[in-house]
Write a protein that binds this DNA or RNA. Structure first.
Lengths: 154, 154
DNA sequence: TTTACTGCAAATATTTTGCAATATC
DNA sequence: GATATTGCAAAATATTTGCAGTAAA
């Protein structure tokens, strides 16, 4: 699914959600959603705010937080707290789940796909708990930090 | 391993780490570490601060944050950001990894052990990345929220 | 004696909230 | 017309930082 198509699909999903929840179709919500598909897969509120400002589209931070929460609620976005600072958001991929490798030294984040693992995860059932989705964080050292550590030891 | 034993082991590990890093063995560090083993498996900085105050042992929040970071660095603690608010910490279990079921509605967190899954995770290798540990978060609805949702529908 | 560590208070950063004005339904 | 949503500013929350005094090595 290319970006224009997934943008259209996301708009439709939002419209659907707004309809069922009897909310309102404001221009802000659609503009923010569109922008999310124009910028990176991962973003922070601040990145999104800056990107919108650059376009000359001004929204308050309060609206940004509200809208993002709405998108999370309707399953279009996932929230991550990789570091202790600001939350990061990512679009929910239509298919092909991935997880995150997080370098404990430099904080760099890499996405990996691991089909076998995703299948295993999807087969898990926990009594009395109704699973919606998973987030797997793998902590360790990225290649760059492994190398720089070796250099230091010499 | 019972609590007194794991407390002793943790103290020893801290001493070892402090020694190799040429840091200092301050009474605050050991008192904080001890307290961590007296309270819950999971805690926030605020809970820990309150618990210490209750004992009449005063440490500044700055010292608390510093010490906790030190414990994370030496592998005695893990940091989690379950919600967007304050960080939660948990003691690293000597053996028997577990993961977390997080209710997206009420925020309640439950721990589960899943040996098969842990074995699967431990067998994963990602090129150029040197894995240290995993954190798996399972999002969904807890039994209580499933029930309360059903009631609403009626 | 050197300097890592502590406590305090101020600073920073992120997110939330109250409220009046506006726009959707 | 009713009220959900917006923008703004202020508030709340969590964490970090600067610095002077203290104490571990």
């Amino acid at each position: 699914m290319n970006d224009e198509k997934s943008k259209t699909a996301a708009r439709a999903a939002l419209t659907q959600y707004i309809h069922t929840k009897k909310l309102r179709r404001t221009p802000e919500r659609y503009a923010i959603l569109d922008k999310i598909f124009d910028i990176a897969e991962h973003f922070s509120i601040d990145m999104l705010y800056a990107a919108l400002e650059q376009d000359g589209f001004h929204v308050s931070r309060a609206t940004l937080y509200n809208s993002i929460q709405l998108f999370v609620d309707c399953g279009l976005l996932r929230k991550h707290q990789f570091d202790g600072k600001s939350a990061q958001y990512e679009r929910v991929p239509g298919t092909g789940n991935h997880h995150h490798l997080i370098c404990t030294q430099c904080g760099r984040i890499k996405e990996v796909k691991d089909v076998a693992l995703v299948n295993m995860l999807n087969s898990r059932r926990y009594p009395t708990f109704h699973t919606a989705y998973f987030a797997l964080y793998v902590y360790g050292l990225c290649s760059r930090c492994q190398r720089s550590n070796k250099r230091k030891k010499k």
